[in-house]
Design a protein around this nucleic acid. Structure first.
Lengths: 137, 137
DNA sequence: CTAGGATTTGGACTATGTCTAACTCTCAGA
DNA sequence: TCTGAGAGTTAGACATAGTCCAAATCCTAG
């Protein structure tokens, strides 16, 4: 089990061709240390917990940079906000529609069969499987 | 093949326990006659094509009412807007990330196996499978 | 024709996310 | 040590999807 710290993060960023600045390290640390799905808003709250030091623009810039560089993945399940997922391996998602909680489903056992061939001239970017659940009251 | 017209729509609405008003009929007709995935914005443009006669508030009210009553389904693939799908049967979606086009995958042959059991006290609301593709070039 | 509930409306409002121009930081070179 | 250029950050204005609300309008039963 890897312990995440700021030094780790700097290496991780460099490995992805990202110049590791203070803000970027903090944002990466927020995501990777908790291995959770966070919205931009949540990232900003966490990073600015003690002293406000990172602006909204930087949070969005950074998350989009991380996306481009393949460091994180975005998960689109809620029309009102995007979640960012530090786990870029193949896996799927369980979304609790009433609480808004989003968790991983490990993919090892899931098989999707019978997908039709793609139209010519297209290639797959990704396959997202989202299981939406709610609490039975 | 069913021909969709305004009278059909009124019946359809009544069958779903919705009072068929002019605006609701027009909005339902826009969705069902073309069997396409439309955003709220597109619905509004279509309905107000000749003379502006339906307000933004009504479009949103109505789409949300249709959703509640199970007449249509929402498809969340793009962080910037929700699509509404008149096809409520079980099927999945193909999303062209570069063009923004969203189409159905009509295969009944798709099988998803190996899904883990749900945590106790939860029930499935729906399973969304989205295949994201882009044009090769 | 009328009253009252259902529906629609314009416009104000909220929230997520983008853009821009100014500012700051870093670091290589003199 | 100083300098300046490029990269990064910032506040705040802006864009846009969607919600909310009080007032106006539209049925429909009587």
């Amino acid at each position: 089990m890897i312990q995440y710290n700021r030094d780790n993060m700097a290496e991780l960023l460099r490995a992805h061709d990202i110049n590791p600045t203070h803000q970027r390290i903090e944002i990466a640390y927020a995501l990777f240390s908790r291995q959770e799905h966070l919205s931009a808003d949540q990232v900003m709250t966490i990073v600015n917990d003690r002293h406000a030091e990172t602006s909204k623009a930087t949070v969005y810039n950074t998350l989009n940079l991380f996306l481009e560089k393949g460091l994180i993945r975005e998960v689109i399940v809620d029309p009102s906000k995007v979640f960012y997922d530090p786990n870029t391996g193949p896996h799927h998602h369980l979304y609790e529609v009433d609480s808004g909680r989003l968790t991983d489903i490990m993919m090892d056992d899931i098989r999707i069969e019978g997908l039709p061939d793609l139209p010519a001239g297209m290639e797959t970017v990704g396959i997202d499987l989202i299981v939406r659940v709610k609490h039975t009251t």
